[in-house]
Design a protein around this nucleic acid. Structure first.
Lengths: 144, 144
DNA sequence: GAGAAGTAACTGTACCAGCAGTCTCTGACA
DNA sequence: TGTCAGAGACTGCTGGTACAGTTACTTCTC
C-alpha cells in the first residue's frame, strides 16, 4: 500500500512538473508526445485510431479530436486503409518526426532531474523490474 | 528511464481501472476521494482551501468548484475562519466521514487486485522505499 | 447475394479543468 | 487613520475530456 502511494505521488508530482515544462519548451502537452511516441515506435510510423486508443497512456477517449488537433498542427496525417474503407491510418509527417525528436530530447532531462536523480541506480533497477509487468502487458495486448 | 516508464504505466493503468470502478460503486470519482482523504488526515478534519490545493494529488487547480460540488453533495461544509475573514475552512460532515470510509473500503481491494497482487512483498518494500521521497516532501512542505 | 450483426471512426452535448482577472480582507507603515 | 501591497478565495471564459448516439463500411449467415 505504501508502494502504491509512492507510485501515485511520484507520477503525479513528476507529471505535474513535466507537462507545463514541455508545453512551454516545445509548445504542446504531454498527451501529444504520448501519441507521437506511439507512432514513432510503430512499424512504418503508422497506426490505426483504435490502436492509438489502446496504447495511449493518458486519454482513453477523445482520440478523434486529439488527432484532429495534432493533424491541424501538421505533425500527423490521416490516410485511408487499403482494403477497409472504414478505417483510418494515422502517420507521422516529416515535421511530426522532427518535433517528436525535439520534444523527446527536451522531455528526457526533465524526467532525469525530477525522477531519476532522486533514486540510486540500485533503486532504479528494482523499481523497473517490479513494475515491468505493467508496461509489458500494455505492449503485447489490447488488454481487456 | 525504464523505472520511470514503469511508474507511468503502473499509475495510468491502475487509475484507469480504479476511477470508473469507484465511480460506479460509491458514486463519485477519485478526485473526491482525494479531497476527502486529505480532510480525514487533517487535524479536526478541517483544512483551508489553499492547504487542500497544495496537498491534493490530482487537480492542482479548480479546487473552488470541486469543493462546490462536494459541498452540494453534502459531504463537506464551508465555515468562516475566526480571525481571518478572507479565509474559508472546509470540514467533513458526518455524512462525508461515512462516505469517505465507504469509498476507502471499496477502493482498497481494487488497488490490491490491480497493483499489489502483481508484486512480491519483497518488491513492494523496494518500491515503497525508493519512492518514499516523493510523498514525503508532499507531506511536510508546500514544496516549491 | 440480400439482410442481420458487428466494427471503425466521427459528432453533439454536457461537464470539468486551466488561466486570468476580480473582489474582499489583512497587516504594515507613514 | 488613510492607504497600499499582498493574501485568500471566487468567477468568466476557453478549451479539452467523457459518454451516448450516428454514419459508413465490412463480415457472417443462409
Amino acid at each position: 500500500m505504501d508502494a502504491w502511494r509512492g507510485v501515485l505521488y511520484a507520477s503525479a508530482r513528476v507529471l505535474g512538473v513535466a507537462d507545463p515544462e514541455l508545453n512551454t519548451s516545445v509548445g504542446f502537452p504531454l498527451t501529444w508526445l504520448d501519441i507521437l511516441a506511439q507512432l514513432y515506435d510503430a512499424p512504418g510510423n503508422k497506426l490505426r485510431m483504435q490502436e492509438i486508443q489502446e496504447r495511449s497512456l493518458f486519454t482513453r477517449s477523445g482520440i478523434t479530436r486529439l488527432v484532429d488537433r495534432i493533424e491541424a498542427a501538421g505533425l500527423v496525417r490521416r490516410e485511408p486503409v487499403v482494403g477497409d474503407r472504414r478505417g483510418v491510418l494515422v502517420g507521422l509527417t516529416p515535421e511530426g518526426l522532427r518535433r517528436h525528436r525535439e520534444a523527446f530530447e527536451a522531455h528526457l532531462p526533465v524526467i532525469e532531474r525530477e525522477f531519476g536523480r532522486r533514486l540510486t541506480s540500485e533503486q532504479q533497477r528494482a523499481v523497473a523490474e517490479a513494475l515491468a509487468p505493467f508496461w509489458h502487458d500494455a505492449q503485447d495486448a489490447t488488454s481487456e
